[in-house]
Design a protein around this nucleic acid. Sequence first.
DNA 1: ATGAAAGCGCTAACAT
DNA 2: ATGTTAGCGCTTTCAT
Lengths: 358, 358
Amino acid sequence: VRNGAGTDVSSLEDVAALAKVSTATVSRVLSDSSHPVAAGTRERVLAAAGALDFEPNMLARGLARNRTQTVAVLVHDMMDEYFSEIARGIEDEAYANGYVTLICNTDRDPAKELHYLRKLRAMQVDVIVFAAGGLRDKQHRAEVDRQLVRVEATGGVVVRLAPHDGGLADVGFSNTVGLRLAVDHLIELGHRSIGFLAGPAHLTTSADRLAAMRRGLKGHGTVLQDAAVVDAGFSREGGEAAAVAFVERGCPATAVVGANDQAAIGFVRGLRALGLVVPTDVSVVGFDDITPCRYVEPPLTTVHVPLHDLGVRGLRVALELLAGRPRPRPVSLPVELTVRASTGPPRPGATVGIRGAG
Amino acid sequence: VRNGAGTDVSSLEDVAALAKVSTATVSRVLSDSSHPVAAGTRERVLAAAGALDFEPNMLARGLARNRTQTVAVLVHDMMDEYFSEIARGIEDEAYANGYVTLICNTDRDPAKELHYLRKLRAMQVDVIVFAAGGLRDKQHRAEVDRQLVRVEATGGVVVRLAPHDGGLADVGFSNTVGLRLAVDHLIELGHRSIGFLAGPAHLTTSADRLAAMRRGLKGHGTVLQDAAVVDAGFSREGGEAAAVAFVERGCPATAVVGANDQAAIGFVRGLRALGLVVPTDVSVVGFDDITPCRYVEPPLTTVHVPLHDLGVRGLRVALELLAGRPRPRPVSLPVELTVRASTGPPRPGATVGIRGAG
DNA sequence: ATGAAAGCGCTAACAT
DNA sequence: ATGTTAGCGCTTTCAT
């Protein structure tokens, strides 16, 4: 094939001509089909392909085979370390299997998510993995499902790394045990009033973790005080704002657990900016154990989640499904508490409860 | 088209049948070609497409049009905040233009880079953007070029966001002015012995920044002492190790500039672990201004590089090239010094120079 | 073991 | 303004 640039780009046909065989034969050796090919012929084909630096056109192959060797990851934001680590895990496993990885940032925007879902369907991607839990909007979910049905109808496969309305993650972890670990740790340190940094209301993960937090507290005969839960939106900025709110409310707890690390990190930062010291004045524990936890000051005590592994395992089940095996039952990867320096015993004689706002 | 799952997935032909027009007409309205179509016909086609929730098969379209609406980003590691921010910029602009983004982690491994280049060629991606500078291995570069020639021969476009052997970045920034800014700042604070945390030897960026550092110092009539440059490998771990080496050498400088932020952040952490205080004992400045700089302790003084914008602008030139316009001349985005808390005047009477190893 | 040829779903001449 | 049809490059029956 000669093209505009004046450079030759070879096709199956060129290889066939050079090797003096049919395109069928070339296809058979180059796509390692099970069809028999004489050793000598195979040699010649390989040699010809090598000589031409032939690379099969995946569009053509995809069209013919209905498979594209492509996986897509949907994340809220790839700059969030939670997602970049998961995505990296997926990419590692994809690479190991000859797949290529698409990354789609949805910014939790329903329209953006839908846009990508249509696009991915159009591209015939083999697998779509949802790194995050879903949005809680009922109608949106229905539309998402409609797209997914069509993706699966064309042989695509979808895998989830977080629970979605009712459905479990294919590969996930337990928010319940994670938050129980966090609460246990704080109780053991002597804390009796524990607050929570809530995530964005429209995410299933937020609801999930809030409920898990309540259960964790209930396990110790305590309940989560409304005044002690402050919105932090899963972000650093949200966490910082939460610190202000927390102090304005008179520090209604001696310890606080964040619905995720970003919120916790921002919260610690906000607290310090306000002159409080962590953990002396208030202990803080995060959730997820994203990389920055080790580098902030003080290093954050948090619930460790095997994020990279989540991605690897997630893609692995996708590949199983593509191979035609039945969907394995959901697995839950172990989480554990990583104690660092943001938690400690409450200050002796610390005033507990609301001391009045302002 | 009826398939295994028993679900209908519609094709152009189905839409044509439903709208009672030819596939050509459907194609014309759905791919907004310039070819005229009567308003009424267009309506019917649109209605039919809508009714079937039709989404064109991009493989088929790509095969026919020789364009895939796909861009690929090559990064060393998407978990490195430097790359995730650039990649996010690219994805934003790609999304805005209806393109989809592939992410390829090379881990600076020549084999991996080549693997992806072949794969991307096979997939007929429209654009390949190199987020990082190249590897310095001559033979590897030759092979890379061979692949790129073929990519371009098929209408693909390649854009670089960092200089490569001899070639300028299409969209880049000046390491020279960045490092001059860093040095000027330290000199102004009173430092006279300034060290450097060098990047991995096999990267062009490392050599580039080291040379820029030398120029910066020379501008003040100083030279970079060999004993004051320590390898930090562009990573946090490397930076931490560098701190140990630095102290073992007797702290041969009162201030150190990192070839990148990761190294600088690790270095600060290492110093602190060794009981030194930053900036009192030694000032540290980074390069790039990745997000974590704001969150470490002390917040890092660094050379700000508009990373997200680099990605956006980079993709923009790629799109121009795809549109057939000539390659614009290289642009250099402005960098500036962001002073935070990791730099200060040298301790009065600080011993300057090598005090003996160990 | 090898080859011929009919698609895969779309686009773009080339008619009409 | 609309339709016919020949590809795009590969895979895969079906022959031989």
